[in-house]
Amino acid sequence: MNTRPSLFSLTFSLPLLIWQLAFFLFPLAFLVALSFWTVRNFQMQPDFDTVNWVKIYSRSVFWDAYFRTLLLASASAVLISLTAFPASYAISFKLGENAKRWMIFVLIIPFFTSYLVRVYSLQVFLSDAGILNAFLGYLGLGPYSMLNNSFGTLTGYATLCLPLVILLQVFSLNFVNRDLVEAAHNMRCGRLRTVLEVIIPSAKAGLVIAGLFAFILSFGDFVSPLYLGGGNPPTLSIMITDITKSGQQWPRAAVVALTMIATLLTVAFAAIKFAYREAGK
C-alpha cells in the first residue's frame, strides 16, 4: 500500500487545511496572546499580564451577562427546535416529492436578504404601535411589549435560525427508514408514539445538530439583542463592543471572546457526543 498521499488528494485537502490554519487557528492563537496584552493611553502593548482575566472574571456584570446569554441561546435552541419539528415532520412525511422541493426552496429564500435588514424591518412589526399590536388591538387584546426585551431577542434569533433548523431537520427526517414507521404501525403503535419512539430516535443525530446550530448562532449573535432586545439587558456580544468602545480595551474583549469560544466548543463536543451515542450505552 502506498502511504504517501497522492497529488490528487493533496490538491483537494490542502486548501482547506491552509484556510483553517490561516483564518481560524492563527487568529485564535493571536487572540490568546492578545488577552495578556495591556493598554496604555489607548495603545495596545505586547505584555504578559493576567490583569485582563482577573478584571473581567471578578466582575459580576460579566457573569450575569454570561449566564443570561447562555440561557437565551439554550432557550432559542429548544424553542426553535420544538417550533421547527412539526413543520419538518409535515414536509418530510406528509408532502409529495414536488411539494417537498418547493417547501425547501421557500425555506432557502430568507437567506437571499441580509439578516440585518430582516431584523430592522421586524421592528415595524413588534413595536408598541406596530403591525402586530395593531392587529391584536382589533381583537381587543394588548398592546403587548414585544420590542426591547427578551421576546424581541428570541424573535430575532428565530429569524436567524428557524429556516436553517427546519432544513436540517427535514434532511435528517428524510433519511429515516420508512420501513421502520410501517413496522411500528403494523405492530399497532399509535401515531404519536411512532413519532416519539421511532422517528425521533432514528433522526436523533440530525435533530441534535440542528439544535446545536441554533445554539451557536444565537450565542454569538449581536444584531438581535441590540436591535430587537434594545441591549436591555446586554448579552456577551454587546459586552464585547462596549469594552472595545470604552478605552480601546481589546485585550479585555479578547478575554470575553475566548470565554465564548471555550463555551461553544464545550457545548458542541457534548452535543455531538450525545447525538452519536448508541442507545443503551
Binding site: 421592528q123 426591547n148 436591535y227 432586545g229 434594545g230 436591555n232
Partner: peptide, 13 residues
C-alpha cells in the same frame, strides 16, 4: 429604561 441604543437605534426608536 426601555433600551440602550446606538446612533441608528436612537433614530428609529
Amino acid at each position: 429604561v426601555g433600551g440602550f441604543f446606538d446612533y441608528g437605534g436612537t433614530f428609529s426608536s
